[in-house]
Every structure is written in structure tokens, then in C-alpha cells.
């Protein structure tokens, strides 16, 4: 069985008593080590799907198997546990904490995983070096450029050595060149054997992935 498998995922939002269907039966499978992009127009349900895949949200109906485990049956604490150990998020708007240093941002997932502080610091520095930002370790996210911030965010996503990286429009706030640098980084992670899922509506981004999943109006197309 694949690393990720969804069966008939449905997500319906309630908005002022009106039902807004965001996903209308999504069934996908992603193997370990795959590099996949999810494409679709705005409002097609890409982010919704990614939140469910990342265990930040739960489907209204349908099943989601992560490493053969039916995640839709788990309680909130177990979902938090999965987010902590198995998944790394990269967001369009970086989502770094502005008041603490880049280093501390990278350490954040490790503090929740109970990694001792020395080990945390060592690994965070190592990760910042990997994304080429060791010299910015003691700066704050507000003191660096967007491209640099996104690289810090990627370092943070890698903190607890997750098998899956989920990125929602990671280049959406960046210029073309910086975006390409970020995609290079993903490629590198992919070559290390990590499973990477990138949500985008930028064809240049999706072209660089190995497989494209297209979604429209909450449904997988073709």
C-alpha cells in the first residue's frame, strides 16, 4: 500500500448555514519518495486537500490512510503527533514567528518533540547551513528577505526529519529567480528520498515535479 492514500474525501464547510463543498470525493495515492504537484484554479480545493493530508484538518467523509493507518479515526492529540513527527509544512506566507530568531524558529518543532536543547541547537544550525542561511541564524525573520525566510521555513519543516514535506504555494510570494532557488531546494530534498507534495497554480513549478495531480471544483480531473 502507498504512503498516502485517500478514498473519496469530501469536505464541506458551513458558511452562515450554507454548505460550501470544497472537496467532492477525492481519491489519490502517493508513493514513498514521490515528488508531486497539485494543480488547479483558485478555489478548487487545493489548500483544503493539503490541510487534510497534513492532518491539520479532518474530512467530512471519506478515508485517509497515512502509512496504512486510517488517520480519519484518530483523535486530535494523535494528529498533532503526526504533524510533529511525519510532516513538514511550507506555507506561501512563510509563517515564521517574528519575535524569535531564525534559529529558534527552526528549533520550534523540536521543542514540541522534546529534543534536548543542545541537540536542538546543533540540528537547527545544521539545517540552516543546509539551506545556506547559517549566517542568518541569529537574525529575526523580519530582518531577512522573502526568499531567505522561505528557506528558513524549509529548514523548520525538516526539523523533526519528517518523511513528507507539504508545501502550499511555496513560491507564491517570491520572484521567479528566488522561486527557482526554492524549487532547487525541494529537488535536493526529493533526491534524498523525501516525499514532497507541492500545491501550485504556476506551471513552471509543476513542470519540475515528477507527477501532476489536477484538481477542479473539488474533484480530481482526468
Amino acid at each position: 500500500m502507498s504512503l498516502i492514500k485517500t478514498v473519496d474525501l469530501v469536505k464541506i464547510y458551513q458558511l452562515d448555514g450554507v454548505e460550501v463543498p470544497a472537496l467532492r470525493g477525492v481519491s489519490i495515492e502517493i508513493e514513498e519518495g514521490e515528488y508531486v504537484s497539485i494543480m488547479g484554479p483558485s478555489g478548487s480545493g487545493k489548500s483544503t486537500l493539503m490541510h487534510i493530508l497534513g492532518c491539520l484538518d479532518r474530512p467530512t467523509s471519506g478515508q485517509y490512510f497515512l502509512e496504512r493507518q486510517d488517520v480519519s479515526l484518530l483523535d486530535e492529540d494523535s494528529l498533532a503527533e503526526i504533524r510533529k513527527r511525519k510532516i513538514g509544512f511550507v506555507f506561501q506566507s512563510f509563517n515564521l514567528l517574528p519575535r524569535i530568531t531564525n534559529l529558534e524558529n527552526v528549533e520550534l518543532p523540536m521543542t514540541y518533540a522534546g529534543v534536548p536543547s543542545k541537540e536542538r541547537r546543533r540540528r537547527a544550525l545544521e539545517l540552516l547551513e543546509k539551506v545556506g542561511l547559517k549566517h542568518r541564524a541569529y537574525h529575526r525573520p523580519t530582518e531577512i528577505s522573502g526568499g531567505e525566510a522561505q528557506r528558513v521555513a524549509i529548514a523548520r519543516a525538516l526539523a523533526n526529519n519528517p518523511r513528507i514535506i507539504l508545501a502550499d504555494e511555496p513560491t507564491g510570494n517570491l520572484d521567479t529567480k528566488t522561486g527557482e532557488e526554492i524549487m532547487n531546494l525541494f529537488e535536493e530534498l526529493h533526491s534524498e528520498g523525501r516525499t514532497i507534495i507541492v500545491v501550485t497554480h504556476d506551471p513552471e513549478v509543476s513542470e519540475r515535479t515528477k507527477r501532476i495531480i489536477r484538481i477542479r471544483d473539488g474533484k480530481i480531473v482526468e
Binding site: 491539520l56 492529540d77 498533532a80 503527533e81 504533524r83 509544512f89 515564521l96 514540541y112
Partner: peptide
């Protein structure tokens, strides 16, 4: 609020 969301996304439990 956003900080709380970020912390939850990287694995903080409600208890944390």
C-alpha cells in the same frame, strides 16, 4: 492567533 496556528502546525498539542 497566527502564532498559535503556527505552533499547532508544527506539532503543538492543545495542551501545549
Amino acid at each position: 492567533t497566527r502564532e498559535i496556528g503556527i505552533r499547532m502546525a508544527v506539532g503543538a498539542k492543545r495542551r501545549d
